[in-house]
């Protein structure tokens, strides 16, 4: 439950192209870590390397170490499937399974572990997860309806419910609010603040106010130019990043001088 992730000398490639270079960072448990930076700087790529979703793309690979509570996630005997069961992910666009009901969507991850669940137990997981995602009251009367019939914000909270239903150690969020209106965004942000008591949360966002509002630590990614690998320029407590950053580039970015 809520584990610490240490990343050392991580290089991330797409085929021969080095997308991210030399990342060293420690992500603390029970806190929200935000990753900001201009488009194409590798923050999403870095996020996807934390639960080994990066290698789903043909030719994509990683060099370096990602260690979660002493276990190297890229160790030779580590099954990426197990890594992803421990580290949940929420995507930029809400993606509930359209062929499943709301109920089945929440249980999708639990069903994968292919253990038989009693009906009462399944009901329990669904209610707990949907309550955890602040969605229960809105959908409790239509659990058998398709998840794709919900609004965008509700769908995203359904995806969060699906991710937390399997009780992961870490929750990765890749711009979870970028497709949502301000009200839904606020709902998700409130939810994140509640969830950080139980999970380690890493969020990629383009919205700097969002990073400032919700996160304890912030990492700033940047790249020197097109075709160059992205780097983690600065990683510091959010307060420091937004008031008195160590790096000139960080200050330029957050003050809107570029990017």
């Amino acid at each position: 439950m809520a584990k610490r992730i240490e990343v050392s000398d991580l290089d991330i490639y797409y085929g021969d192209f080095k997308a991210v270079e030399g990342v060293n960072v420690a992500i603390e448990p029970r806190s929200i870590t935000a990753l900001i930076g201009p488009s194409g700087c590798g923050k999403s790529t870095f996020l996807r390397s934390l639960n080994r979703m990066h290698e789903v793309i043909p030719g994509a690979r990683v060099e370096g170490k990602v260690v979660m509570d002493g276990q190297d996630l890229y160790g030779a005997d580590v099954d990426p499937v197990n890594v992803r069961r421990q580290i949940g992910m929420v995507f930029q666009r809400p993606n509930p399974f359209p062929t499943m009901s709301i109920y089945e969507n929440v249980l999708a991850g639990n069903r994968l572990n292919s253990k038989r669940m009693k009906k009462a137990e399944a009901d329990d997981v669904v209610e707990r997860s949907l309550r955890g995602a602040n969605l229960w009251n809105e959908v409790k009367d239509r659990l058998d309806r398709p998840g794709s019939g919900l609004s965008g914000g509700q769908q995203q909270r359904l995806c969060i419910a699906r991710a937390i239903a399997v009780e992961p150690d870490v929750l990765l969020m890749d711009e979870p609010c970028s497709a949502l209106d301000p009200i839904s965004t606020l709902a998700i942000e409130d939810l994140m603040t509640e969830l950080k008591d139980r999970f380690t949360i890493v969020i990629v966002t383009h919205n700097m106010q969002q990073a400032a509002r919700v996160s304890e630590s912030t990492g700033f990614f940047n790249l020197n130019g097109v075709g160059q690998p992205g780097r983690l320029i600065e990683f510091n407590p959010t307060e420091k990043i937004f008031s008195n950053p160590d790096e000139k580039a960080t200050e330029d970015y957050i003050s809107g001088r570029f990017g």
């Binding site: 639960n51 979703m53 789903v56 499937v81 197990n82 890594v83 992803r84 069961r85 949940g88 992910m89 995507f91 666009r93 993606n95 509930p96 399974f97 359209p98 062929t99 499943m100 999708a108 991850g109 994968l112 572990n113 995806c159 699906r162 991710a163 399997v166």
Partner: peptide, 29 residues
Amino acid sequence: APALHREAALALGATRWEMIRMAVLPYGK
């Protein structure tokens, strides 16, 4: 079959066959 849903399945810890069963077969039925 949308990459969005295939990745959703993989990110939940689906094996390739489970991903196909969750995201590809229902979509293609």
